[in-house]
Design a protein around this nucleic acid. Structure first.
Length: 363
DNA sequence: TCAATGCACGC
DNA sequence: CCCTTTTGCATTGA
């Protein structure tokens, strides 16, 4: 009785930059750097994705654009703003291809997909590998894009495996090889271990998954709480029972904007808020929901993030009501934090479906 | 239950 | 030449 699953993780290689290579054959061979611009004239912002030609001289995701420009000096590099409509369109088409091959499908992000092949392959990893090869061939035939695929007994292992050989890789980790595969890897390969957690462990001499495995469950729970502690304990052992499957509707929408110049003037801020509120309301309308909670997030000139939120007595998607609340929250914030704000944002959450609302009214 | 905060994450 | 954006989750404290 096969209790063992076979899970596939498909990761599109340097996706945004590869999509641009595909759209612009004339850029062939040149370094491509896709950016998130906050001020396109002054060239402010960060690097979103760079192709391998750009990575070769040190350009990385999240790097300020001016830094990337320094590294790219004399390298004939191309800097582009993101064309998200293009990426969404490609992503949707590729998702369709991937989904066809499995029993259960999950789009984890714009460039990542999970597939459950348990029933389709009946425990046979050779079959799973053949399917993965077909997925790669199909995606390349239709879109001329490469991806890296990982196969393992669960999502955790499949995702780490897809990252193991890039670009255009295919890595299969048999169940009996999982521990051997994970043990020497740095702990931040594990989903959920980021900069802070890595620092915490490194200060204690814990660098690899093997080191982490030797840390007792009690200590992990003590330090990180029940949920994350238990997850880390299991993950170090290659254990992950999370199912591949549909993700429920979104729970929040937010929009943030970096101001041209930091400001602590409420009127100036209100001018910008108007547009942001419009955008989150448009998202609510698309999803046919009303929000019960409205909030703000702002980053001050010292790069400290501040948040405030207010739960309303009735769910709504009315611009006037939302904007009024948001202005109140900003007014309070500026009173408390007497610093100019560099970024300002709005957030809506705690949704109720409009349909559900109609239903309630029928009672 | 609500509000604030922090971490992760990947583009 | 400083340092984006979006969402989700967990924790904590009232």
């Amino acid at each position: 009785m096969g209790k063992e699953r076979i899970i596939v993780h498909v990761d599109l290689d340097y996706f945004f930059a590869q999509a641009e290579e595909r759209e612009h054959p004339e850029y062939a061979g040149r370094p491509i750097i896709v950016c998130v611009y906050t001020d396109i004239e002054r060239g402010r912002g960060v690097v979103s994705t760079a192709n391998y030609a750009a990575r070769a001289f040190g350009v990385r995701s999240g790097m300020p654009i001016f830094e990337a420009r320094k590294l790219a000096q004399g390298k004939d590099a191309i800097f582009l703003p993101g064309n998200y409509e293009l990426y969404e369109r490609l992503s949707a088409g590729i998702g369709e291809i991937v989904a066809r091959y499995g029993d259960t499908f999950e789009q984890a992000s714009i460039d990542e997909f999970f597939l459950d092949l348990t029933a389709r392959c009946d425990g046979d990893y050779t079959k799973a590998k053949e399917i993965a090869e077909k997925i790669k061939a199909d995606i390349f035939a239709k879109y001329k894009l490469t991806c890296s695929i990982g196969i393992g007994p669960n999502k955790l292992v499949a995702k780490i495996a897809s990252d193991f050989k890039k670009p255009d890789g295919l890595t299969v980790i048999l169940p009996e090889k999982v521990q051997e595969f994970l043990d020497p890897l740095p702990i931040d390969k594990i989903l959920g271990i980021g900069r802070k957690t890595k620092e915490y462990f490194e200060a204690r001499g814990i660098k690899t998954v093997r080191d982490l495995r030797e840390t007792g469950a009690a200590i992990l729970i003590e330090e990180f709480g029940k949920t994350i502690g238990n997850w880390l304990y299991a993950a170090a052992r290659g254990i992950d029972d999370s199912p591949v499957g549909l993700i429920e509707g979104q729970k929040q929408f937010s929009r943030i904007k970096t101001l041209k110049e930091p400001s602590d003037n409420l009127d100036e801020i209100i001018k910008e808020l108007d547009q942001l509120v419009k955008e989150v309301i448009a998202e609510m309308k698309r999803n046919e929901v009303w929000c019960k909670t409205v909030g703000i997030n702002a980053v001050d000139i010292n790069m400290r993030m501040h948040t405030k939120s207010k739960t309303l007595s009735h769910p709504t998607d009315e611009p006037e009501i939302l904007l009024k609340r948001i202005v109140e929250l900003y007014s309070e914030l500026l009173d408390e934090v007497r610093l100019p704000m560099r970024r300002i944002g709005v957030r809506v959450e705690n949704f109720e479906s409009v349909k559900g609302q109609r239903k309630l009214e029928e009672f």
